[in-house]
């Protein structure tokens, strides 16, 4: 019987007491729950999962990058409020706050030696989506992550620390953005037109509003 997620978590904490491991519940029909690892210990935990005699997760099948945008959460709270005539009344107060987004790398692990029946899913999260986008690379533990982490770096912009060869995989080296991010704007000039018109012009105006304004009518663009 292969250990379940609770037992794996307990086993990690038994051997690496400083680690923070949280179980992330999956609400869908598949019920594939996952373990969220803290970035400081992720490499040690990964090596432990691979080498532990009971687990032997020697095969990392898949690495997925996910982009979670900033989320606006509305919270309703009941508060007692002093009315004008001196009585107290309970009213609902709505507060809005922004839950900051983050980038996530999801790894699906199996054990070839133990023939584990289902994937053990682990997740690593970056601090935010903009300036702190590092997670530790697990390529030193599983070589199979090498090309997949390069792909996630390329398309999502997650920087994998200690990756042996972190270059873009699919886009060309000079490319600036990360096209799989949810807020990526695709270029309007796949085929550049000197005098854009119709929907191409509309897209160009949205994409380069300042440029379009400064160019004026002299460019010959149909308005």
């Amino acid at each position: 019987m292969y250990p379940d997620l609770e037992q794996i978590r307990a086993r990690i904490l038994q051997f690496i007491p400083a680690a923070q491991v949280t179980i992330v519940n999956n609400t869908g029909a598949a019920e594939q729950h996952s373990l969220l690892l803290d970035n400081a210990h992720a490499r040690t935990i990964a090596a432990f999962l691979r080498d532990d005699a009971d687990l032997r997760l020697d095969y990392c099948s898949n690495v997925t990058g996910v982009d979670w945008l900033d989320k606006e959460v509305t919270e309703t709270k009941k508060v007692a409020e002093q009315q004008a005539d001196g009585t107290e009344k309970v009213v609902e107060q709505k507060t809005k706050r922004i839950e900051p987004g983050y980038l996530e790398a999801v790894y699906h692990l199996y054990s070839i030696e133990k023939k584990s029946p289902a994937a053990i899913v682990i997740r690593l999260r970056t601090a935010n989506r903009t300036d702190n986008v590092t997670v530790p690379s697990l390529t030193p533990v599983w070589r199979s992550c090498e090309l997949q982490e390069r792909e996630v770096f390329d398309l999502y912009g997650i920087v994998f620390e200690n990756h042996p060869d972190l270059r873009r995989l699919l886009m060309w080296d000079e490319f600036k953005d990360h096209p799989m991010r949810k807020d990526y704007v695709s270029p309007d000039d796949y085929e550049w037109e000197p005098t854009p018109h119709d929907e191409v012009l509309t897209r160009a105006m949205q994409h380069y509003p300042q440029e379009e304004a400064s160019r004026g009518d002299t460019e010959g663009a149909e308005k």
Binding site: N26, T27, G28, A29, A30, Q32, S61, N62, T64, V66, V106, H108, A119, V121
Partner: peptide
């Protein structure tokens, strides 16, 4: 419209493990 959640499924393709990871 699947319920919010995620699933990874794989089969033995002719070239190896072909899998899909979907998040709804």
């Amino acid at each position: 419209r699947p319920k919010a959640g995620e699933a990874y499924a794989r089969i033995e393709g002719p070239k190896g493990e072909i899998g899909f990871h979907l998040i709804s």
